[in-house]
Design a protein around this nucleic acid. Structure first.
Length: 306
DNA sequence: CACTTGACCTGTCCGC
DNA sequence: TGCGGACAGGTCAAGT
């Protein structure tokens, strides 16, 4: 899927479009894609959209006349909040379609998406969320690895997948020393594989692991225990740089990823190594190599990365 | 226990 | 053009 920058892009866009909207109907087209009781969501109002690692959360509360009051309730009584949790895995998409765009507080937000309207649903649509103003959110997932689940907000922290997650790399508190500490938890594996473990750092996937290691000039085959403090510092900077750059570019679109408007991200136009086998290294002009590490394609420059 | 491989799915692309 | 195999943003469980 979508790694951190792609989910972050979806989160930011969805937030401006669906907060304050009331859910009217949920249609499940593939049972395996949906866990929990969808009927609990009908009539609820969206109060928040958030991201943790590669997961997307949409918080909803039972509607009480106005959405303003709902917002108040959410702050006072978190036990009332339900979360619609998404994991897009390899091929998930979240598409928003609203003919006039969502409205909140009297002004219109977002861009018109009438072009997507006729294309949705498509053959990979697995779940459809309909709002009372006619807007819709489509969860598409060609490979059916992704999922949507309904869970009480208060129960999320108890989920094993949440408890074990490593730190968020774009939070201010994420330092190179924390990165070092997390990576040394499994010091005998290859650095590229360690970066993919969500217990090490949350949100880094196959694209940004290769990119961050290139920026840090570290060979992806290195064993974690061989890294110096200077390496950890460069890697820390490389992770942040690649993730931030990708968010600026709206994420990476190799095959499936699109944002909520159905548009592709452009990070791969700037990528140093990912998906650039035999391409020219932007720094030393030698050929980019592709190898397999931990069963995943890994791209790097033999000259630049030591 | 630490680490690796296969499974989950559908679709596309590449070589013969 | 057709067919088989490898491969694709992720994560689990089972295997070594």
């Amino acid at each position: 899927m979508p790694e951190l920058p792609e989910v972050e892009t979806i989160k930011r866009q969805l937030k401006t479009r669906i907060i304050g909207l009331k859910l009217s109907k949920i249609t499940i087209l593939n049972q395996k894609s949906f866990q929990g009781d969808a009927t609990l969501l009908e009539g609820t109002v969206v109060v928040e959209v958030w991201r943790r690692a590669k997961m997307l959360g949409v918080d909803v509360v039972v509607s009480r006349q106005s959405s303003d009051l709902s917002l108040q309730i959410s702050k006072q009584n978190s036990s009332q909040i339900l979360t619609i949790l998404f994991h897009l895995k390899m091929s998930g998409q979240v598409i928003f379609v609203g003919k006039q765009g969502a409205k909140k507080g009297g002004f219109s937000l977002g861009h018109p998406t009438t072009d997507m309207f006729d294309e949705m649903p498509n053959k990979s649509t697995r779940v459809i969320f309909e709002f009372s103003n006619g807007s819709k959110v489509y969860f598409n997932d060609q490979r059916k690895f992704g999922w949507v689940k309904v869970i009480k907000r208060a129960e999320i922290e108890g989920l094993k997948t949440f408890q074990e997650l490593g730190p968020e790399p774009l939070e201010g508190s994420f330092s190179w020393k924390i990165l070092k500490e997390c990576l040394l938890k499994h010091k005998n594996i290859v650095i590229k594989v360690a970066l993919l473990d969500q217990k090490t750092i949350a949100g880094v996937g196959n694209i940004y692991a290769s990119e961050a290691l290139f920026i840090a000039k570290i060979d992806p085959r290195r064993i974690v225990s061989t890294l110096s403090d200077n390496d950890f510092q460069k890697l820390h900077a490389g992770i942040i740089e690649s993730l931030q750059k990708s968010i600026e570019e709206g994420g990476s679109s190799r095959t499936h990823y699109v944002n909520v408007e159905g548009k592709r991200g452009s990070y791969l136009d700037f990528a140093f190594v990912y998906n650039r086998k035999d391409g020219i290294c932007r720094i030393c002009r030698s050929r980019i190599k592709k190898i397999t590490l931990g069963g995943r394609g890994t791209f790097y420059c033999e000259l630049c990365q030591k």
